[in-house]
Design a protein around this nucleic acid. Structure first.
Lengths: 209, 209
DNA sequence: AAAGATATCTTGACACCGCTCAGATAGCTG
DNA sequence: CAGCTATCTGAGCGGTGTCAAGATATCTTT
């Protein structure tokens, strides 16, 4: 059964099992959380035998990498959308931070897989370094548009790194119960995020000029 | 608690198996990493049967919690030392951030266990909320000593939260290979940390006055 | 179209895992 | 001493990641 028109793409025995496996994994991840994401469960969900995935992925880790890869793509898209919706570079910076944390909060299991696989390799995903339109570049470019000197590479890198660390740290912390009363005091989750970012000195609308 | 001189305390059948198990776990953690930390392996390392730990911990998670608890104690101690060694509150703030990240970098497996178990419960450990001399309090108090208004609870909490998120974010990021060339450009790991903190606007020696 | 090569999937197995339970053992209490 | 309770062992359950061998479907070559 060849979809599209030509017999290209990847219509193999099953159709496209790698695709189906990643989809099944994401379905499981959303429904049952990261701890339920076993290779056998994914195969079960996709309707194949426990050994089938090994013809498409070297091991479980490689399947998780594929899932994480999709996660980074989704994050890129979310940041692109936030950047596009901002009327000015300064608000863009602020919105990028909020969008980043919101993505993590709305996809906690996926976010965890993304960073767990990255930490296991001590290596951020390829998208982060190779592509010219990845999430890191979006933050960096927004900073330049906001007035940072594009020639001072070192400075730009440090600032972008600081922004990324801030967002990641907040993304992981925002899930803890301890912060619920502060969120309430701020008037909701997003105001809380903006307030914390403001106290970090970054993502602040009147920040880095 | 009668842990004075007599044969009280906890010298049971084995002597003190819970203690021995936590020690074995930390030994394994340091030697083999978090993925090798199975309950059976810990029991093996401690020289007991695979079922023995269940008389001291409800399940594997509870053993990991005990390990994490020790981690938070060590972190408290590291921060206390950094704070004590600083000549001024402002430098204390900066040193706290560096000490936090250094602790995470020197005990990566332990740090991971600490936050993994916390995230699983969406709950930072008891030490973080109950004690009056925990790591969170140290950051908060240092901020007050640095000139923050101790009466503005909301402000203090936000600032302390921002500081903690920054440090955690940087602690997790600093392990990635991608940052090695920036570290080199900064002249080492600690200068890199200080530079990133400076760009977050916190932990900066001339920061929050 | 027939035959062979190749990719895909299944079956079965191995070692390890978390966890439970019945029984053996050691220490405490009366 | 006996009785009791806490501690530990052993065997076993269902689950996991992974591999090797065989079955099956697709592609290639003739």
């Amino acid at each position: 059964m060849r979809d599209s028109q030509a017999a290209e793409a990847r219509p193999y025995h099953h159709g496209d099992l790698s695709r189906a496996l990643v989809d099944a994994a994401r379905r499981l991840l959303e429904a049952e959380g990261p701890s339920a994401l076993s290779l056998r469960a994914v195969a079960r969900e996709a309707g194949v035998s426990p050994a089938a995935p090994y013809h498409h992925f070297k091991d479980k880790g490689e399947l998780l990498e594929a899932v994480a890869h999709e996660g980074w793509d989704l994050l890129d898209a979310a940041l692109a959308k936030a950047k596009a919706a901002a009327p000015s570079p300064r608000e863009a910076m602020s919105n990028l931070g909020v969008a980043y944390v919101c993505f993590a909060r709305e996809n906690p299991a996926l976010y965890r897989v993304m960073y767990d696989t990255a930490r296991d390799k001590a290596d951020l995903p390829d998208q982060m370094q190779e592509s010219e339109d990845n999430a890191y570049c979006k933050v960096r470019d927004t900073m330049i548009e906001g007035g940072a000197d594009p020639n001072d590479t070192h400075e730009i890198e440090l600032a972008t790194t600081a922004a990324w660390c801030s967002a990641h740290g907040l993304a992981e912390m925002a899930g803890f119960k301890q912060f619920e009363h502060i969120k309430a005091a701020c008037g909701g989750e997003v105001p809380f995020l903006r307030a914390v970012f403001a106290h970090m000195g970054l993502f602040h609308q009147g920040g880095a000029d």
